[in-house]
Amino acid sequence: MKIIVCVSHVPDTATKINLGADGKSIDNNGVTFVVNPYDEYAIEEALKTKESLGEGEVIAISVGPEVNKETIKKALAMGVDRGILLKDENPRDSLAVAKALADEIKQEGAELVFFGKQSVDYDNSVVGQMTAELLGFNSVSVVVDFKLDGTNIVAEREIEGGREVVETSLPAIITAQKGLNEPRYASLKGIMAAKKKPIDEKPAAEAKSYVEVVEMKRPAPKAAGKIVGSDASAVPELVRLLREEAKVI
């Protein structure tokens, strides 16, 4: 079976982000980029599925600029068989990314596709579901347990206060949540093997972006706290402030 995993190349969550001169993007200088952490669960699940089937091919696809190849290479080093970069040096909104992916998934003829549940750059959490809609695939999001039996799927997804069991079938898109599995490390052998694995590069299918970034700014700095007193006599004033000023009780 052909399994596709869609991966995005994102700033490391521990990196301090600075705004670019245009006020609409981040300054990439000194920013370390990594494989989107949720995509690592998606890669692992794709590899595990292939291993349990005992046959097949796992393909990693990324939409974006040339540097996204680094993330594809990491996926190859983890064991993915080949990569596809759908190249676009300009930023795209979620729908335009989904359209490029859907186009490629259709061409590859894959029926099982894994995504991370969200990319930790813009955190929109929609690309997987949009892609499913465009392709007419079933989709289960925020998945923490996945079983494939023939063409039948039983997936558990995280919901508020519990888990929901979803039964569906191929073709399907699964978006991975932390807890789905323990992503493997890129082994040294895997890193060497990745050098010989192909990465196809082609222009991403044209698609209009409906979302435009108008401005980026830092959140307002947190104001200094207020100390209303240090013993029990301050409690009435504290309650009054929480009720009337902060309006939280």
């Binding site: 493997r184 490390y185 082994s187 040294l188 052998k189 890193i191 060497m192």
Partner: peptide, 23 residues
Amino acid sequence: AELGVFGITLPEKYGCANMNNVA
């Protein structure tokens, strides 16, 4: 072993990574 840190510079035919000395 799964990470591949035993015999890093030795040939693939022995299950090693055949990497250079920087690695």
